[in-house]
Design a protein around this nucleic acid. Structure first.
Lengths: 229, 229
DNA sequence: CAAGGTATCAAGCGATCTATTGAATAACAA
DNA sequence: TTGTTATTCAATAGATCGCTTGATACCTTG
């Protein structure tokens, strides 16, 4: 094998992972998996795809090393393949919003008008001071799979009925899946209408989680992560 | 437009950038551009592709927001589109080597046996102490486009003739384009054969550069960066 | 073991992607 | 202007991708 062949073999191997990001359906699956591991048919329902199509895309993601899978009784649970996969997806998401005007426009269309926001540092300071209530407005199973310390789970579709649980004399901060998730925007609008002071946390759970444990483990390759080669 | 349509429009827009990483040729072009901006025919020669094909892939990268371009007289100079693009490419490269056994294998095939290495922190300490010589073994034009402070340019193909310039009683550290570049490996082997103590810097210029200025500017969108939408 | 749900496989068709070829355009120099 | 070099455009054929449909494999429960 000449050096040129060895080099192109290398880039071809990297492109195997790169192809994972070429399809909008796969990106949506990655986005969902960034919140919590899920079974195939949950992902199919959440993404609006047929089960067969979802399964095929998940296998493509698996071959690309972006997800792991494990059989659990009658179903198969897929999960993002560790820190590298999560930070890679977030890097793509952030780069695309920074460099492609079309992404920013689509995000604005989807999210509606911006609401008042708060950043990580300020939130942590105010939580230590105890003058803010933090709520997680994602579906409960995503909260259960991991959430910010000190947050209370109030899924968006329960918010209206459970307004009484929330104080009227304290700042309320809502967060959800991330910058492309409309839940926190809506929660802040609902809370504002009810006369409460509310802000949206700029970070979602995945970003928070990634920033929280900074580059800890060099991650020895785990069983089930390395696909067929 | 329903919410579902708005959401899929968002993921489709992100996939425009994702498609940039689906082709080995484009990845090699990104890797070259991570070292220095270049004209189309330089990239064509360096990647072993026809000019027309290179031009088309560069246009795809431009549409994906990954590169910028500027006419310079008779030629067109392409460059990586800022920090986000560089860190995204590096994230993909690192994730693929971590999660895909095939990438690791291809890298080993290409690079040959590993040589003694040194990390960023230790190098900086030893350079402050003055007991190490740092050489940049990339082609001179890449050195000119940016290099580590204190490094001397000795392109690999000049190393044998210029061995006399290098001390025999000091540690020598060589670096090149990054973990997938064979130059530094070869330089260390050559230096070792000549009786010198030599190590390879684990970081290449792009990683060094990215780590050096940590997340400085939020980068307002620059002219020429936002492609047709 | 049979039934029922969950996931994967196999085949097929249209759409998209890739590299090639040859022509067209842009900047510059004589 | 004309020639030269660098780049892009346009058209094409072959390969790959993406989704659908219907059949198959796997695991649990009765």
């Amino acid at each position: 094998m000449t050096s040129g062949q060895a080099k192109s073999a290398l880039f071809e191997a990297i492109a195997v992972m790169g192809k994972a990001f070429a399809s909008p359906v796969r990106l949506e699956l990655l986005d969902l998996l960034a919140q919590a591991p899920r079974a195939v048919d949950e992902l199919a329902r959440a993404s609006g795809q047929s089960t067969a199509n979802t399964s095929q895309h998940l296998q493509a993601l698996y071959a690309a090393g972006m997800v792991t899978r494990a059989r659990e009784g009658t179903s198969v649970r897929y999960a993002l393949a560790g820190r590298e996969a999560l930070s890679l997806w977030l890097a793509l998401r952030d780069a695309s919003v920074a460099r492609l005007a079309e992404v920013e426009r689509a995000a604005r269309d989807y999210l509606g008008d911006e609401v008042d926001t708060i950043g990580r540092e300020e939130l942590m300071a105010r939580m230590r001071a105890g003058d803010v209530v933090l709520i997680d407005v994602r579906p409960r199973e995503e909260f259960d799979a991991g959430h910010i310390d000190g947050a209370r789970s109030i899924p968006l579709d329960e918010l209206e009925q459970r307004l009484a649980e929330l104080p009227t004399d304290q700042q309320i901060v809502a967060y959800c899946r991330g910058p492309f998730c409309a839940y926190a925007h809506q929660a802040v609008r609902t809370l504002g209408t009810s006369g409460r002071r509310a802000q949206r946390l700029r970070e979602g759970w995945p970003e928070w989680q990634l920033a929280r444990r900074p580059a800890a483990k060099p991650a020895p390759r785990t069983a089930g992560h390395a696909p067929r080669t």
